[in-house]
């Protein structure tokens, strides 16, 4: 089983990202589960969402304490929340930042960085980074195929918005592949 924890702020679409990961993983032929940390939703407040992926049906319903992967949608959360808490040593953290990975040497696991905000601004025209980070996740981890992320995003967002989101997913995926 692979466990993923997504840190974001209310309004950034962390819960949607967790859901889309679950949809994409299932598209890949795996079982999946996504759920929010059930806080009272407020825009800007720290939010956590979780996804589990496994070959077998998933029965576990506790929160995720030892994630294989952590996705940080907003780098300013790193001063507020223990985003690395419980992260497995051989796990990975994917951070949305313009800084380089070396800047995060305090994280006791591999760090991959992506400037998701820039990609989102350039392609989508708004700083909505959740789908961008899904592309980055697929590119950095290869836990989920790019095509499945594309399909999950395309099914959720229709028309031009959907196309732009898919383009942003691909850009982040390729950025990770190259790094």
């Amino acid at each position: 089983m692979k466990e993923i924890r997504i840190h974001g702020r209310g309004g950034q679409g962390s819960v949607t990202a967790a859901e889309l990961l679950a949809v994409a993983a299932f598209e890949d032929g795996q079982y999946s589960q996504a759920f929010p940390s059930f806080g009272v939703e407020r825009r800007g407040a720290p939010v956590v969402a979780f996804t589990r992926i496994d070959d077998e049906p998933i029965r576990m319903r506790s929160q995720v304490y030892n994630p294989d992967y952590v996705i940080v949608q907003d780098v300013t959360l790193m001063d507020v929340v223990d985003v690395a808490g419980g992260l497995k040593e051989d796990g990975m953290m994917i951070i949305n930042t313009e800084a380089s990975a070396e800047k995060f040497e305090e994280v006791p696991a591999r760090v991959m960085v992506v400037d998701a905000t820039r990609i989102a601004m350039e392609i989508i025209g708004r700083p909505i980074v959740n789908t961008v980070l899904l592309g980055a996740f697929a590119g950095a981890t290869h836990e989920i195929r790019l095509n499945s992320i594309r399909k999950a995003v395309g099914d959720r967002f229709s028309g031009t918005i959907g196309e732009k989101n898919i383009e942003a997913v691909e850009a982040a995926y390729n950025a990770m592949e190259e790094s």
């Binding site: 589960q33 929010p36 319903r61």
Partner: peptide
């Protein structure tokens, strides 16, 4: 509530 009402799964 939440644990089952808000979970996404197959």
């Amino acid at each position: 509530g939440f644990i089952l009402t808000h979970v996404y799964e197959p």
